[in-house]
Design a protein around this nucleic acid. Structure first.
Lengths: 212, 212
DNA sequence: TCCGTTGTTGAGTCATCGCTCAACAAATGA
DNA sequence: TCATTTGTTGAGCGATGACTCAACAACGGA
């Protein structure tokens, strides 16, 4: 897959000049994994180029700079199954309750899946940054807060549909489910198993208006 | 100086040689604030010495190295009201339910208090670190996981006391409340207000066995 | 065939990182 | 008074950070 028409399966405009000697998408996947594991600043360009098997100048020619590469990595992650499960649940589930139940259960399973780094890249990859990378942290913060807004929209729709009572506190519920999802990510990074997180998800669902 | 018996209030053994020209506790408080704000690696020794008003060699003479300073900062933070509220609630509240309700409400209020950095230092100060600082991340991870164990102990006591039914899932509840507290910290760092987090805390309490 | 374009290569830029050292300054004990 | 001890100072160490540049290599178009 690609961002908006890069060298992805469906290729791109014919290029002149020397063709790239490495797979741009594979390199991007490598970047996703490293940023996911260690975070933005703790992953050096040297580690990235070594893992990609290329030289620094090739990375800069292909991606711009480290921040641009990170932004692309976040977008790729967000379109991967692991990064898109929240949006998919919100879009596909008929009821809000079903959507949030699925989100929590998926988060428990996915965040602790040992086949990839624990937790969520968007939650944990830019929490500790220097002043010069504040924009990167702000970028991910905006992504997270957009998630809160999406939760709130879904909850308000549920109120309009009558699924939730009129007195339900949509902003608080949106913030609550966000906090739980972020907490699941942290717990996964701290070593919690999928089984443990699955039980946490069930407990968290008790906050749904009307109870368990 | 000493690692066990700092120059806190109750002073320390009489020193020979030239006396320190700066307040060690005040310097430590500065370190707490900077590490709390930016995290371990994103806070440079240069920033620390500038904020403390001292030269690097003075910092190293007084604290050892950057990691040792961080460990001391974490201990000081943990003894401050802001860092000790969890332990205090567990120790002082008669019922487990009262303890966890107080923990969540305190977390909501304290993590979003604008008079200091948002969230919890132990939760957010060493999430993105390079391989060479892995021990620092492990140190805070152990602190957090010790918190989970403390939660579980309190919940098991509640089961023995009959406050919780025998079939209550203490490990899952401990992990759940940990996740919520960590989520509150993250939400606070992302800009959530104390009012918003207070409503989140009330929602989270609905998971208590027996419901709301 | 030769040109223009693009990518790779290896060396190297400059800034900052954590940290240290020799010289000097200020205290105590003899 | 003077030796000892401890802290401060200013300069600077080696390593690593992100990033760049000139030279070379591989392609398409004319």
């Amino acid at each position: 897959m690609g961002i908006s028409g890069y060298s992805c399966g469906m290729s791109e405009a014919r290029t002149r000049g020397r063709p790239r000697t490495f797979d741009r998408d594979a390199a991007l996947a490598t970047a996703v994994r490293l940023f996911w594991e260690r975070g933005f600043e703790a992953t050096s360009v040297g580690e990235l180029t070594t893992a990609m098997g290329i030289r620094p100048a090739s990375l800069y020619a292909a991606f711009g700079d480290k921040k641009a590469l990170f932004r692309e990595a976040v977008e790729v992650y967000g379109r991967s199954p692991v990064g898109a499960f929240v949006a998919e649940a919100l879009a596909e589930e008929e009821t809000a309750r079903g959507a949030f139940a699925r989100i929590l259960r998926d988060a428990a399973r996915i965040y602790a899946d040992p086949s990839h780094p624990a937790g969520c890249l968007a939650i944990s990859a830019a929490t500790n940054v220097t002043a010069q990378d504040a924009e990167v942290a702000a970028f991910l913060r905006d992504v997270r807060n957009a998630g809160v807004a999406a939760f709130e929209d879904r909850l308000n729709r549920a109120k309009k549909d009558g699924e939730l009572p009129a007195e339900a506190d949509a902003p608080a519920l949106a913030s609550y489910f966000t906090a739980v999802v972020q907490g699941l990510s942290q717990r996964a990074r701290d070593g919690a198993t999928a089984e443990e997180l699955a039980r946490v998800a069930e407990l968290a669902l008790a906050a749904w208006p009307g109870g368990r």
